[in-house]
């Protein structure tokens, strides 16, 4: 029983990382209907920026986090302006290929000697790890921080989208871009803001991921990114609380199926569950039925 509870803790810890990446994914998707595969590479850049902020600039955790968020927000806006904006009215597949191109670009540029070089880097222990033990159960402060940050980010994002003027403009843009423009909403500005926020979220994810799993390499974002994407779809893509729940579910499913069913098949099991859920409820767990996606 203790072991089972410990596995639940493991699952939630893993799931909170997925959730953190996933809410950024889902927000960008929700507003501009673009699966941004480069999101997981902005996540990677975020982790690397955090690394440089901590080791070279000697910043503490919070300043490094903000530094990385700012750098990534800027990067996200630049990428959107340069690579995605000209293609806004093209076919979905064209945009998708462009995001893959950007992904390859980011992965390969970070490897160059001028930036990080080809070797793996170790994310510095910016907050010393402390382990708590309660009745045979064990968890670390980093795991708590991860969960805390994902919940806070999720709530903040939900507040931003549902309660503020910018959020209202975002929803309008998401609903009908042309009509929103006619209503006097500056579409370009809203999309830039969306990308800035989404990329800053990715940066947060990158730093938290670096603290939990201190190994930096250019392809570090790919698998977590894919899982987070699955989580976003599972929760109903475009819905922020859905992404949170989706992320936690994927983390739990992965952990529990690894331990109690088969470690070799755990990824397959996660995908089978996803497909079944989509077949039963094609818009995801929290998706609205009548919305045509």
């Amino acid at each position: 029983m203790t072991e089972f509870l410990q596995q639940i803790i493991n699952g939630i810890s893993l799931g909170s990382v997925y959730a953190l990446i996933s809410i950024g994914y889902t927000m960008v998707y929700g507003i501009i209907k673009l699966i941004n595969f480069a999101h997981c590479d902005i996540f990677m850049v975020g982790a690397y920026t955090g690394y440089f902020a901590i080791t070279t600039l000697r910043l503490g955790f919070i300043p490094a986090l903000f530094f990385s968020m700012a750098v990534c927000a800027l990067l996200g806006v630049v990428i959107e302006r340069v690579a995605y904006k000209p293609l806004r009215n093209s076919a979905k597949e064209t945009l998708l290929i462009t995001t893959i191109g950007v992904e390859l670009f980011l992965q390969n540029i970070i490897k160059t000697k001028a930036l990080a070089g080809p070797n793996v880097l170790n994310f510095p222990e910016v907050i010393p790890t402390a382990t708590f033990k309660i009745g045979g159960l064990q968890f670390s402060n980093i795991q708590l921080i991860t969960l805390g940050i994902s919940v806070i980010m999720c709530a903040a994002l939900q507040f931003l989208i549902s309660k503020t003027n910018t959020g209202r403009a975002m929803r309008a843009t998401s609903y009908d871009r042309d009509a929103a423009a006619l209503m006097g909403i500056n579409i370009n500005r809203i999309i830039s803001v969306t990308f800035a926020i989404g990329s800053a979220l990715a940066a947060t994810g990158g730093i938290v991921f670096g603290m939990l799993y201190p190994k930096l390499e250019p392809i570090m974002g790919v698998m977590p990114g894919l899982k987070a994407f699955v989580a976003a779809v599972l929760g109903g893509i475009g819905i922020v609380p859905g992404a949170m729940v989706g992320g936690l579910s994927i983390g739990l499913i992965e952990t529990l199926s690894k331990v109690y069913i088969s470690s070799g098949l755990s990824d397959a099991i996660a995908f089978i569950i996803l497909i079944i859920i989509l077949l039963v409820k094609p818009t995801g767990l929290f998706g609205k039925r009548n919305v045509k996606v």
Binding site: Y29, I35, K92, F229, V230, V233, I237, F271, I272, L274, I275, L278, L279, P282, T283, G284, V293
Partner: peptide, 14 residues
């Protein structure tokens, strides 16, 4: 029966 991105993620999962 699924459309758009939901079909995409399903085939990717497959």
């Amino acid at each position: 029966r699924l459309t758009g991105d939901y079909l995409a993620i399903c085939t990717l999962g497959f």
